[in-house]
Computed example of a mutant assay.
Amino acid sequence: MSSTKFILGLFEDPDEMLDGIHKLQQNSIPIYDVYSPMPIHGIEAKLGIKESRLGYAAFIFGCTGGTVAFSMLYYMLVWDWPHNIGGKPNFAIPDFVPITFEWTVLFTAFGMVLTFFYATHLFPGRAPRVMDLRATDDRFVIAIDARGNVPHEDITNILKEAGAVEVKHNDRKYVSYE
């Protein structure tokens, strides 16, 4: 059995890489991931990637922040230590709006940063995980899981037909920068 975990097709041009994706999909070869040094418009739809759920997470964090702020203000200013300031009511909602808004934004910002770190595995101090170091500089990489049913030679030929400059057989999942 081969120790190859991934077959990498390296391309110089994004259009050739998109052609490679199309040819692989025509031959029913599942693509593990695509790495690019720049954003490519429409590649998510081509790969069948679902729409992000980060908006839902932001909404939940915002609701949590607003609820916490409003609850704290109510507890501190109305229930625990009410003050009679010029005969105004203790529970004046317009007074609560600025602080509640700021806490909503604060919870959303911090929650989204933590969610981003969790989703991308890019915690501070951790080495980035990339398939090929040139994918961050000047190459477009298609990674294919080699443990499928299709022979490796067929995948290599399809990638070369599509315009791959180089086809690599990786025995490790990621390459480190060290």
Score class of each variant (00 low, 15 high):
Lys23Pro: 00
Lys50Trp: 00
Ser52Glu: 08
Tyr35Ala: 09
Met38Asn: 06
Trp79Gln: 10
Met76Gly: 07
Trp79Val: 08
Gly42Phe: 04
Gln26Thr: 11
Ile60Phe: 12
Asp15Glu: 15
Thr64Leu: 15
Thr67Arg: 02
His41Thr: 06
His41Ala: 02
Ile21Thr: 07
Phe61Cys: 09
Gly62Met: 13
Ile43Met: 01
Ile31Met: 03
Gly87Phe: 13
Leu10Pro: 00
Gly65Met: 08
Pro14Ser: 11
Glu51Lys: 15
Val78Phe: 01
Arg53Ser: 09
Gly48Met: 07
Phe61Pro: 01
Gly48Pro: 02
Gly87Cys: 11
Ile31Tyr: 04
Ile43Phe: 01
Ser28Tyr: 10
Ile40Cys: 04
Phe70Ser: 12
Ile49Tyr: 14
Glu51Cys: 01
Pro14Glu: 12
Met76Asn: 14
Ile21Cys: 02
Gly66Gln: 06
Pro37Lys: 03
Arg53Glu: 05
Lys23Cys: 08
Trp79His: 13
Tyr32Gly: 01
Phe61His: 09
Lys46Pro: 03
Met76Arg: 12
Ile29Cys: 04
Leu18Ser: 09
Gly65Ile: 10
Glu51Gly: 14
Pro14Asn: 09
Gly62Ala: 13
His83Ala: 15
Leu10Ala: 10
Asp13Pro: 10
Met72Glu: 04
Tyr74Asp: 00
Glu16Tyr: 06
Gly87Glu: 11
Asp80Lys: 14
Ala45Thr: 11
Ile85His: 02
Val78Thr: 01
Gln26Ile: 05
Gly87Trp: 13
Tyr56Phe: 12
Ala45Gln: 13
Gly42Asn: 03
Ile85Pro: 00
Ser71Cys: 07
Ile85Met: 12
Leu18Met: 14
Met38Ile: 13
Leu10Phe: 02
Gly48Glu: 06
Asn27Pro: 00
Pro14Phe: 07
Tyr75Val: 11
Gly42Ile: 01
Gly42Met: 05
Ile49Trp: 12
Ala58Asp: 02
His41Ser: 06
Asn84His: 05
Asn84Glu: 04
Gly62Tyr: 09
Asn27Lys: 13
Ser36Arg: 02
